[in-house]
Design a protein around this nucleic acid. Sequence first.
RNA 1: CGGGGCGUGGCGCAGCCUGGCAGCGCGCCUGCUUUGGGAGCAGGAGGUCCCGGGUUCGAAUCCCGGCGCCCCGACCA
Length: 560
Amino acid sequence: MTRLSAYLLPTEKQAPADAEAVSHKLMVRAGLIRQLGAGLWTYLPAGWRVHRKVEQIIREELDAIGAQELLMPVLNPADPWRRSGRIEIDEIFKLEDRKGTEMVLAMTHEEIVTTHVAQVVRSYRDLPQILYQIQVKERDEPRPRAGVLRTREFIMKDSYSFDRDEAGLEESYAKHIAAYDRIFERTGLEWYRVESDVGMMGGSGAHEYMAPCAAGEDEVALAPGYAANVEVASADPQAVELPAPLPEPEEVHTPGLTTVEDVARRLGVPQGAVLKAYPVIAEGRGLVLVMVRGDHRVNEVKLRNALGAQCRPATPDEFAQKIGPAGFIGPVGANAPVVLDDAVADGGYVTGANRPDFHLRGVEPGRDFPFERADVRAVEPGDTVGGEPVRIEKAIEVGNIFKLGTRYSSAIGAHYLDESGRQQLIVMGCYGIGPARIVAAAVEQYADEAGIAWPRALAPFDVELVVISRGESEERTFADGLYEQLKATGLDVLYDDRDAGPGEKFADAELLGAPLRVTVGRRTLAGGELEVQIRRGRERRTLPLDGAAEAVKALWETLP
RNA sequence: CGGGGCGUGGCGCAGCCUGGCAGCGCGCCUGCUUUGGGAGCAGGAGGUCCCGGGUUCGAAUCCCGGCGCCCCGACCA
């Protein structure tokens, strides 16, 4: 029974003043969600329908790879979190029960699921297993933002694989890739599977599923056959015209010129012929001088991975003694190991001279300073991969898959006995999907000036039936009948039977974004034709009244 | 955590500087008219002006303290 006259769908003409992202504005305006507090959102009935459609797609595809759904508590004893060490994470909500026992609100469930598996799995015969849940997660986010894109409480599909060995993990991982590819394909989103950083948790591999959209928090580097988070992206640099090295470095006076741009302009060389110095303090290693082309930027995630250690920019005090004065530092004579970016080709470079107001020109890496090579720069638009230019797009992470290895099984103590009776650690993977982000990304990707234009798979309703008539009338009677017939075809129909004018009904229908709108008015009965609007593109068509419900269903099935 | 902004009816806002009746548009309710792109007329309801303290004859407005929310950056296991 979905008659709009009796359905809670509070639409607004004006977006809340504090909304910035398109999905935030439209989801509130369309009556899908309401805010309770920072990063806390209620799904109203129509919004929850969309969320459940996403969940259902996820369930079907995970069940298809043999994953088993379960449900674990959000409220956790602190102990497993202490064992894994993750109790230290600032984002975890912590609380005490009335007896003073420390508890946490789970932000994900590696510790808990591993605890259960450790108790239950004894033998290699009990493996592999894939378990998943669709459950609330709690994170004390430093900055919730953009409606449901980054919230403190959210629903997540999290699955966990348990295998005997690395080869088993590879299989479970491959199954998840297959399931995820199908899930995202079915949602109707534009999406990419990209290589991603494994982070400080170690792990042997990770991918993210990214949906391009303006409100996205990440950036992805894309080229035909290539997709990677810019945090790990690698590409061939654009060429730069380099002067030849001089027989030996030559000092040039560059008073007050501390930026690559200024130095390059003064010396009449391209910015790429200057070497930019980026001193860092690497954990366990001390001061390291990172050198990249002047027209490039250091990518801190790639640098961290290259150094195999956390690092942070060094302060002028920290490098003044061993290298030189801020603004004029360079690798020649520096008392620190030099990491030279892969994009630095052979040639003569301008570098800081390690004394105030001077640079060196004609510097040749290797001859004039020792270095180790690494790929530590951020990919730029126009770089190439396999000869194809790279473009960079904003995107929101809608899913991730991660080879955990034994990080949690060793912390929690999850073992099994192998064929020869030896105790082995279970090898794990974890795999997340954020249904709310899928919803928001779909809004972002397909919205137009009139509102939301859902992909067929996610729309809260398949068809919105609008009757233009107030009170009892021939049109109303006809529309009532058509509503029943449409429902009988299996379509989810929202029937706008409100006592409202046509403009208001059309505007609300387009705001809510069902893929099809069917209009019944005086014209319909007079002309003998039913008017249908395809929401995406707002194209109008007519269908014969005879067999209209089946024709609507058939048209709906052709939509994206 | 650093920077910026905002809290006044359901939504959007004005009023604050320079203290003196709490206002506007939309929405909502009633009646009549209207009925294919957010209608017209008439009448009406709805407010702890974020909270607490202070100054003052008098505070939405000035002062002090707190809370909440948004945006940019940092962070995001």
